[in-house]
Design a binder for these strands. Structure first.
Lengths: 200, 200
DNA sequence: CCGCGAGTGTTGACGCTGTCAACACATGTT
DNA sequence: AACATGTGTTGACAGCGTCAACACTCGCGG
């Protein structure tokens, strides 16, 4: 699949292969409880080979989470970059892309927000997460500037919006948002509820 | 601590002791990656003794999660049982109790919504979770009946409200709701945002 | 052209885990 | 008094994360 025929004694790009194999296993299984040894087996190397590229399993998980946040940020940026009709449309486009990302990569999404990966210990991870959060802040700021959103402190709004999409994503991953439990289009309904308010 | 002096050969109430020990470890550590053997050690029994009471570790985790949902339901019921001034006050009281529960028992809360515990395989767990959700539904229904909340499908509102509190709780657990990142009272601000809407 | 050192992969070991089977003890029933 | 049942113990197994020692390759200095 990766051409070049030759497989020298030294794998050549084990680091990338380990990451990709782990990403595959994250997609297949339902948790990040895959074993490093299984990753090595699939990559066709010995059980200790990955240790030449990652100090321990936590470092690999942190790397996966970092890549996940980068991907998420790109998805958000992509969903909102071309000019949209309204602040509301932009907000919904971003939020849908966010939920979509989580539903498409459930184990990865869970890993990104898991306690098993120590954000404080991996600066890159923290940066990647902050940049993804900044996309959300941008949407709200533009909405405020256009006058479409209330001019409350934007970071407080962001906390609310982030909490809502984060919670929705996890509920969706858990299959809690089935139509018979929660109505026909729960995600759209939830966005509408947040934008318009619950109170009459 | 548990009186009665005598410690017969047969522990007498190992099941309860195992559960309580595991709950303690859930409180101490930051994950549910405690080991069954350590639980047994602390309980003062041999490493295989817990297997006489739980078929495997997953069953113990499911039991802990079930107890957690029961506790959560009680907290919610307690916070909203005495008549409150308004639907809004009742909603906020319930939501605060919810977030408080999560922040007070972070590992337990995470466990309850983790993929590591298979809801489908433990009917009691599913029931306990559904009953907790029903508390939320009740709040919203009463709010609608009093005319304070919009008469949208209550289950869709519930999805939005649950997503918000669930997301807020997890963000709070992760320490993401620091005032300098997100304003002074992020939880209150988020509730206000949901109730009143983001749009101006 | 040679030799060597750094980088990367392998082998084998350690202590730990979850789990199981075989055994030991205590108790209540017949 | 004998025993079946429930509960605890002991010892084993495979698999895990991780480490140390060793092996192979390749590129560079001489």
């Amino acid at each position: 699949m990766q051409g070049r025929g030759d497989r020298p004694y030294h794998h050549g790009d084990l680091r990338r292969t380990v990451i990709e194999t782990a990403q595959d296993m994250l997609r297949e299984d339902k948790g990040w409880q895959f074993t490093l040894r299984e990753v090595a087996r699939r990559a066709g190397v010995s059980h200790a080979a990955p240790y030449k590229h990652f100090p321990d399993k936590g470092a690999l998980l942190a790397e996966l989470a970092t890549l996940g946040f980068n991907d998420l940020r790109e998805q958000l940026a992509g969903a909102t970059e071309r000019p949209l009709r309204s602040a509301r449309a932009e907000f919904i486009a971003g939020a849908k892309a966010y939920v979509q990302f989580g539903v498409t990569n459930p184990s990865l999404y869970r890993l990104m927000f898991s306690a098993d990966v120590d954000k404080a210990a991996f600066k890159q991870l923290d940066d990647a997460a902050a940049k993804a959060f900044a996309e959300l802040l941008g949407i709200l700021e533009r909405g405020q500037q256009s006058g479409a959103f209330k001019k409350h402190p934007v970071r407080a709004q962001a906390a609310a919006a982030w909490a809502l999409v984060h919670g929705l994503t996890l509920l969706a991953i858990d299959g809690q948002l089935l139509p018979e439990k929660v109505g026909a289009k729960p995600v759209d309904a939830a966005f509408a509820a947040l934008l318009e308010g619950l109170e009459s």
